[in-house]
C-alpha cells in the first residue's frame, strides 16, 4: 500500500519515467530513422517534464513577482534550464534530420535495418 501511495503522490515523476522508457524503447527498437528522432524528442520532453515537476510545489504560482502578496512561487531555476534544454534538443533534431535526408540520398531508404543490409551486401 505504501508503494502505491508513493506512486500516487509522485505521479508526475512516474509519468515522466514511463514516457522516458517509451521514448527510449521506440528510439532503440524502431528501425525507421525519423521515428527514432521523434522518439528522441519524446524522451527529452519527458525529462523536461520531470524537471518542471521538481520545481513545482503544490499550489505554487508562476514565478512572476507581484508586489505586496506573500505567495508560494514555483522554483524558476528548472524553467530557465529547460529553456536551454529545449533549444539544444531542437538543434540536435535539426541536425539528425539533415543527416537523414543526406543518408536517404545515398541509400534510397530511411530504414536503418535496410541500410545495414545494403552495407553488408557490399
Amino acid at each position: 500500500m505504501e508503494i502505491l501511495a508513493g506512486i500516487i503522490d509522485n505521479y508526475y515523476y512516474m509519468v515522466a519515467i514511463i514516457l522516458f522508457v517509451i521514448g527510449m524503447y521506440t528510439m532503440l527498437t524502431h528501425s525507421n530513422m525519423i521515428k527514432k528522432v521523434i522518439a528522441m524528442n519524446i524522451m527529452d520532453a519527458s525529462v523536461f517534464l520531470m524537471f518542471v515537476a521538481v520545481g513545482y510545489a503544490h499550489g505554487s504560482q508562476a514565478p512572476i513577482i507581484t508586489e505586496g502578496n506573500d505567495v508560494l512561487y514555483a522554483n524558476p531555476l528548472p524553467g530557465a534550464l529547460i529553456l536551454t534544454g529545449i533549444v539544444v534538443a531542437v538543434s540536435v533534431t535539426a541536425y539528425a534530420l539533415s543527416l537523414i535526408v543526406k543518408i536517404y540520398r545515398h541509400y534510397e531508404t530511411c530504414d536503418y535495418d535496410e541500410i545495414c543490409e545494403i552495407r553488408s551486401l557490399e
Binding site: I34, V37, I38, A74, P78, I82, V90
Partner: peptide, 22 residues
C-alpha cells in the same frame, strides 16, 4: 505546473519548429 515561460517555448519550438522540420 506554473512554468508558463517553458510552456511557451515548448509550444513554439518543441512543437512548432520540430514538427516543421519533421
Amino acid at each position: 505546473l506554473s512554468a508558463p515561460d517553458v510552456a511557451m517555448v515548448e509550444a513554439a519550438l518543441g512543437t512548432g519548429v520540430v514538427a516543421l522540420l519533421l
